[in-house]
Amino acid sequence: MTGCSDSCGPDHAGGCAVGDPALAELQSSGLDRREFVCIVAGCAAVLAGGCSDLTHTQYVRDRFRELTDDEQKEIVARIEKEQTARLGKELKVGVEKARPGVEFGYALDLSRCIGCRRCVYACVKENNQSRDPQIHWIRVLEMEKEKGIDFAHANPYYDAEQVPRPGHFYLPVACQQCENPSCVKSCPVGATWKEPDGIVVIDYDWCIGCRCCVSACPYGARHFNWAEPNVPTEEVNPDTHYLGNRPRMKGVVEKCTFCIQRVRNGKYPACVEVCPVGARKFGDLRDPNSEVRYVLEHKRVFVLKTELNTQPKFFYFFGL
């Protein structure tokens, strides 16, 4: 691990803070925005980690969420054009907003999950995760039934002819979409925030790649693009959202968004659709008829690391 992320844990968030005056100064400096803030944050190591090569970093505009609809449309149109040209394939970048009165939640049935990793790869495909270097937003942990939920002895690298392996159970982990997200608090530039429907998002054009959020997340759910992400053109999913699965660049952080490009259009996330055992449940926590509400009311649910008070909206349960 490099120095930056180690020194930027939630306890040291002060060390990462960059005031807005710095941003103003940056507009006049000739420096790349991301490199500049990296230096200010004292995270020189990041430079080597890849803060350069930014195709659409813009210094002058406001954070995406503070832009007017027209400004958003303009930015998105530019990205669409750039990406379509780069890929030789039409790409759509949506800006669908949170629906009023909707709050997303997720529930995963640990007594069903067999650890087949269909979700991992459906997610990679849907969300344009880099193939090489490899980024997986979902990690499936194999645990021993005898030990119970025990992250210290969990194994994400299991392989077998068949799963479930006797004596084991499986716990998939991705972004827990916390009500009280420590990653958001750790971001020195406000490039990541919680949307009104509860989805924690990242503006890749605003992210400076300092990786404070990566170390602040207690669930290991944030992933840094150390190199230029690589997705074969024919496998690029062209249905994207600005805050979700649009193509990322080297030097930015990414993570699960509950498939924002799907769920804001009423569809289930890709992992829910693909799960062969039906372990994954998704819906509106405020809708009493949703599957997630049924789980909350009829099953014993738990969240990971309650003691941290992150208040995940990703629940685990035993459906037996």
């Binding site: 992250f151 210290a152 009493p288 008829n289 509400r293 909350l296 009311e297 995940p312």
Partner: peptide, 26 residues
């Protein structure tokens, strides 16, 4: 391998929905 996150010893019941209306479809 030391896993980056630790065991949640308190697997408490998460109480998000205090509203236990039994208004499911019949």
């Amino acid at each position: 391998m030391k896993y980056p996150f630790l065991l949640s010893s308190a697997l408490g019941l998460a109480l998000v929905c205090a509203c236990h209306q039994e208004e499911h479809r019949s």
